[in-house]
């Protein structure tokens, strides 16, 4: 691992009196897939949003690809072009059809000409398996399709890093699999990914590293097998047992149970 693609140093963020992040240090290498898990309110989404400065950290530094995002003089729009972000609520532009959702940012932000933008859009729609929806409007798509379009929209900008903020949390359970499949494909292609998720199966299978957060700090991190399979900390164990079926005694069997469910 050469220079880390994402580097977070002593990151603090508070909203008023509420300290959401209390000193986060994290490095993500090139091509690495890191899943951030933890209970709601643990600050994992805030951490992700600090990486592309959708939230302004109270203290600390964030570097992406060697550029300091938190530098007040940085051209944040230029930095964000290299960071794709996928939201829980998809946030497709409802007044544009699928292709326009992909071409407008390329044309306005990257100043690509019409033909190039259309070509890149078609390419990325094919990657997420939605070529036939090119002319559809977001409101006519299912949640899973919307999220795949959102991923394609981010990819069309040619990002070096992808951030995923609970990308499957707003989806009906039977639609989760398609989105995870696209993310898995990205991971195998070597994309650097930071994924906030509750999908333990995905984390276990795809992540190079899992980070467990609670109360605004990183409680433990390591390989998925270690953090999810045999967590060292009581808080991690407690969280995992509540997330997975509490009736099951063994965590491992529960996760293999979920594999079948996701792929069904």
């Amino acid at each position: 691992m050469s220079r880390p693609e994402i580097q977070v140093r002593d990151l603090h963020k508070s909203f008023g009196d509420n300290d959401v992040l209390r000193g986060i240090d994290l490095e993500i290498g090139q091509g690495e897939v890191v899943c951030v898990i933890g209970p709601s309110g643990s600050g994992k989404s805030t951490l992700l949003r600090c990486v592309n400065l959708l939230e302004e950290p109270t203290k600390g530094q964030v570097f992406v690809g060697g550029t300091e995002v938190t530098d007040p003089d940085v051209d944040i729009d230029a930095v964000r072009r290299r960071i794709g972000m996928v939201f829980q609520q998809f946030n497709l532009f409802p007044h544009l059809n699928v292709t326009e959702n992909l071409t407008l940012p390329q044309r306005r932000v990257l100043r690509r000409d019409k033909a190039t933008a259309a070509e890149v859009a078609a390419e990325n729609l094919a990657r997420v398996g939605l070529s036939e929806k090119a002319d559809a409007y977001p409101s006519s798509l299912s949640g899973g399709q919307q999220q795949r379009v959102a991923i394609a929209r981010a990819l069309a900008m040619g990002p070096e890093v992808m951030l995923f903020d609970e990308p499957t949390s707003a989806l009906d359970p039977e639609l989760v699999g398609d989105v995870l499949a696209v993310m898995r494909m990205l991971a195998t292609e070597g994309m650097t990914m930071m994924v906030v998720t509750h999908e333990m199966t995905f984390a276990r299978e795809v992540a190079d590293r899992v980070v467990f957060m609670d109360g605004g700090v990183i409680v433990e991190e390591g390989s998925p097998g270690q953090v999810i399979g045999s967590p060292r900390h009581e808080r991690t164990r407690h969280f995992l047992s509540r997330l997975l079926d509490p009736a099951m005694a063994e965590v491992e069997e529960e996760t293999s149970d979920q594999v079948g469910k996701t792929e069904a």
């Binding site: 972000m85 939201f87 609520q89 532009f93 981010a154």
Partner: peptide, 22 residues
């Protein structure tokens, strides 16, 4: 919705351009 501005900004739109285009 606020998410529209966030999506635009995260794609690299400047505040003014996000306002006009999105």
């Amino acid at each position: 919705p606020k998410g529209q501005l966030e999506a635009a900004r995260s794609l690299g739109f400047s505040p003014a351009r996000a306002m006009v285009s999105i």
